[in-house]
Design a protein around this nucleic acid. Structure first.
Length: 490
RNA sequence: GGUCCUGUGGCCGAGUGGCUAGGCAGAGGUCUGCAAAACCUUGUACGGCGGUUCGAAUCCGUUCGGGACCUCCA
């Protein structure tokens, strides 16, 4: 990609401002995104975040960066809450269902991969698991203890937030002040071990009935909530890397703790650019596993949910997500998705007609400003909705050329076609929907359309309309045009 | 209670101190045997009240509403 297109700005949550993106190591970019906790099916809200970062990954690659994209799988479970004495979620579910913990992990990891593949997300380069990096996590804890910023109590190790804050700034990412945090803390059971309620566990002593546990210098236990991301990002991307992403709800305490841990262990600030994707809302509230206010991708693809008027293709959902900026909340409604579906189809039909356009000796509308506008949109903090708007400008142009109301040279068409295809398929990650992939149905439809055509030529409107109406009842829409008759499933 | 975000036309959703966002729906048109589809045209909206300014929906104050985080959560 040409250098002039490479002036990407990213909104850095750490500074609260858009900053020009400059990788730490020349052409290489390290990208870490917090992955899912695999104790239940991913819901659509989770997917939004991963789709947004898929866009980031894709655009960075389009700009010619060599990206290493790391996204973890949290399979060690997180604490249910402070009151349940450290039982982790995966272990709890395992007991309920009489399954091995890793069986649960496997089931939902597969679901996660299948779902993201349906959304046409590219897999990350490395997808490390928390359980596979216990040793790295123990080593990091030892580093932090050696620096005097963590302490052991009864086989558990806690990070000393106040001590860290004496020389560093705990709260720099989330904008919190430690005094406010202390005053706002509620006194909960099971926190008596901690020197301060703000301290968080790096290692947790495991009760005998706890299923997932590992030996450590402090006894049998399991790693703390936030440590895995620090250990794995350090291992695969280094002590300092470029971009760390995740959902807005992870900003505090998860990412704040990551900064503190990483900084404590290595003496360096781990992340140059923090990116936070906003929530997908349903009924005006964030989707959430714990409150049940969510929608599963499978329900969306099948239409099997009362909130949905019909089923939606994963690509329609992806397009819907691309029509909102990643830092804004996006409200999910069946109506909004239906609107997105129509727009998506219009865009894709225009893109497909690119290859059939007739070229002329001259170009009526210069294409360079249009193409530049694609880059300007994405360079401005990955503004996909602006990009989509500009692509619809291109749709208008394509249709005008198709109608003979505008013209384009072969040379310009080649360039335009290449760029539009790159932005639509490679960057936005959209795919065409194959309605007509059932070959036997296609054959039958060929015959039916041919019979209807014959009837129409004989002005036998009764027969032709009967065919049309019957097909409509069967969910197949007939589309007549000058070039002939097409059909589509409704 | 603390910290922060947000309120845009029927719906979703960008953006900006003065210059059309875009999509969908609606309206009109072209096409068509009639329709549908497709395509073209079309909408001066920015929560209320003050203030700053030549000019604000965009900045400031205030007020009302919505939301996020402060406990696991993308």
């Amino acid at each position: 990609m040409e250098a002039q297109n490479r002036n990407l700005s990213i909104y850095n949550s750490l500074s609260g401002e858009k900053e020009v993106f400059t990788p730490i190591h020349g052409n290489f970019v390290g990208l870490y995104v917090c992955g899912p906790t695999v104790y239940s099916n991913v819901h659509l809200g989770n997917c939004r975040t991963f789709i947004n970062f898929d866009l980031v990954y894709r655009y960075l690659m389009h700009l010619g960066y060599k990206v290493r994209y790391v996204r973890n799988i949290t399979d060690a479970g997180h604490l249910e809450d402070d009151a349940d004495q450290g039982e982790d979620k995966i272990a709890k579910k395992a007991k309920l269902q009489q399954l091995e913990p890793m069986e649960i992990v496997q089931q939902y990891t597969v679901d996660f991969h299948d779902t993201l593949a349906a959304f046409n997300n590219l897999p990350p380069n490395i997808e490390p698991t928390a359980t596979g990096h216990i040793i790295e996590q123990i080593e990091m804890i030892q580093e932090i203890i050696a620096k005097g910023l963590a302490y052991e109590v009864n086989g558990s190790v806690y990070f000393d937030v106040e001590k860290y804050n004496a020389s560093e700034n705990y709260g720099e990412l989330s904008g919190r002040k430690i005094e406010d945090l202390i005053s706002g803390t509620r006194e909960l059971d099971g926190q008596s071990e901690k020197r301060s309620p703000l301290d968080f566990a790096l290692w947790k002593n495991a009760a005998p009935e706890h299923i997932m546990k590992w030996p450590s210098p402090w006894g049998i236990g399991f790693p703390g909530w936030h440590l895995e991301c620090s250990a794995m990002s350090t291992k695969y991307l280094g002590e300092e890397f470029d971009i760390h992403g995740g959902g807005m709800d992870l900003k505090f305490p998860h990412h704040e703790c990551e900064i503190a841990q990483g900084h404590a262990a290595t003496g360096k600030k781990p992340v140059k650019y923090w990116m936070h994707a906003n929530m997908l809302t349903l009924n005006g509230k964030k989707m959430s596993k714990s409150t049940g206010n969510n929608l599963l991708p499978g329900e969306l693809f099948s239409g099997n949910n009362d909130l949905l008027e019909k089923a939606f293709d994963p690509m329609v959902v992806r397009f819907f997500i691309m029509q909102a900026h990643y830092r804004s909340t996006l409200d999910f409604t069946s109506e909004a998705l239906t609107a997105a579906e129509k727009g998506f189809k219009r865009l894709m039909e225009a893109v497909q007609s690119l290859s059939k356009l007739k070229t002329s000796a001259s170009t009526s509308t210069p294409i360079t400003p249009l193409i530049n506008s694609f880059y300007e949109a994405m360079n401005d903090d990955f503004n996909a909705p602006i990009l989509v708007a500009k692509l619809f400008d291109a749709v208008k142009l394509i249709n005008a050329i198709n109608d003979g109301k505008a013209s384009i040279t072969q040379e310009d068409l080649t360039i335009l076609s290449k760029e539009i295809n790159a932005f639509v398929f490679d960057i936005l990650g959209l795919k065409t929907i194959n309605d007509n992939d059932d070959s036997s149905l296609s054959k039958v439809m060929e015959l039916v359309i041919d019979m209807r055509q014959t009837a129409r030529e004989n002005k036998d409107w009764t027969t032709s309309d009967k065919i049309r109406d019957f097909l409509a009842e069967a969910g197949i829409q007939i589309k007549d045009s000058k070039e002939g008759t097409n059909w589509t499933k409704i």
